[in-house]
Nucleic acid binder design. Structure first.
Length: 321
DNA sequence: AAAGCGGGGCC
DNA sequence: GGCCCAGCTTT
């Protein structure tokens, strides 16, 4: 006789009656055994290294971040190193991680840490939150992972795990609701040390087991207690808004221009070359180029010869007098 | 609250 | 071809 998740729930203990301490223990033990050996999890990694890893991981899968992080940290080990780097080198090192504005924000963040915090990453979540490119998630992640503080961390993984395990459904809307934040607060272990393990462990569980697409519930330490699993894994009732298109969008064309500039041998490229790289018409290319200029991802360089300005990577250099 | 912002891998 | 990814900023 086979047993489906739906008809075997009577033999299981629902999460509502599972002591929080036991829930923590299940996650902590699983994490202890299955945690990935990510480079920024080595004990010697500085808070700055953790911050860099978090910014790189904003909307980029961790597997693609790891090699870029290693190279980046060898090149610019401290905020002061990155603060004074050539922005073009920063954008090249960012490579194809995506959303290159993040690279500029990260350098601005390094400059702000150098200027406002004596070159040391602040541990106060509010000070972190005030830094360029650091939002609520990243501030909490750095406070928790780099400084060991007891603070709620809520990313897409943790939202999904908590939603499924506790509520039986995952609210896929892009930002968390007050109810989700309150629920996450109520689950956070009392001690700072346990709260860090909780945050890391539940996030890792979401990344490796309780994935969005095809969750591996057979390998999940919470399977017997998970509301979503026990109730038959219904489709979520709260759907995310449609994922933004990429093919054919300005974003894709911007990406082509940036890629060409990263790989250009010289310091700059002609607009004609860039339009060929973008493979689009005049009006479209003009719009793309203007948006990149506005974002300070590129700047014009004078070429002496009339008319044909060249384009170079990064924000315009500061006026030197 | 919604839109804009890369790019690769997987189904 | 759609979906998803350790989100943030601007409007």
């Amino acid at each position: 006789m086979t047993s489906s998740p739906a008809d075997s729930h009577r033999t299981r203990e629902p999460v509502a009656s599972l002591p929080r301490r036991d829930l923590f223990r299940l996650i902590a033990d699983w994490f202890d055994e299955h945690r990935r050996d990510l480079p920024w999890r080595r004990p010697s990694v500085s808070p700055w290294g953790v911050l860099v890893s978090e910014v790189m991981s904003q909307q980029t899968p961790v597997g693609r971040v790891a090699p870029a992080w290693v190279e980046w940290m060898e090149t610019w080990p401290t905020p002061a190193d990155l603060a004074t780097a050539d922005p073009a080198d920063v954008l090249r090192a960012w490579g194809s991680l995506g959303y290159p504005r993040r690279a500029l924000r990260l350098q601005e963040c390094a400059q702000a840490i150098t200027d406002r915090h004596n070159g040391r990453v602040p541990g106060d979540p509010e000070l972190l939150r005030a830094l360029p490119g650091i939002g609520e998630y990243t501030a909490a992640a750095v406070a928790s992972f780099a400084f060991g503080q007891r603070i709620r961390v809520l990313d897409t993984n943790i939202r999904r795990v908590i939603g499924r395990v506790i509520s039986g459904e995952f609210d896929q809307r892009p930002s968390s609701t007050a109810a989700e934040r309150s629920l996450a607060d109520s689950l956070l272990p009392a001690s700072a040390g346990d709260s860090v393990i909780w945050n890391e462990g539940i996030m890792e569980l979401g990344a490796l087991i309780c994935t969005a697409r095809s969750p591996r519930c057979d390998d999940c330490p919470l399977a017997a207690h998970c509301t979503w699993n026990v109730e038959g894994r219904r489709v979520p009732e709260v759907r995310r808004s449609p994922v933004q298109k990429f093919a054919g969008t300005d974003r894709q064309l911007r990406g082509r221009v940036m890629k060409h500039l990263r790989q250009a041998t010289g310091a700059a490229a002609s607009e004609a070359d860039l339009q060929r790289a973008a493979a689009t018409d005049d009006a479209r290319f003009a719009r793309i180029l203007q948006s990149l200029l506005t974002d300070r991802l590129v700047h014009r360089v004078p070429t002496g010869s009339a008319g044909d300005a060249a384009i170079a990577l990064g924000p315009p250099p500061r006026a030197v007098r």
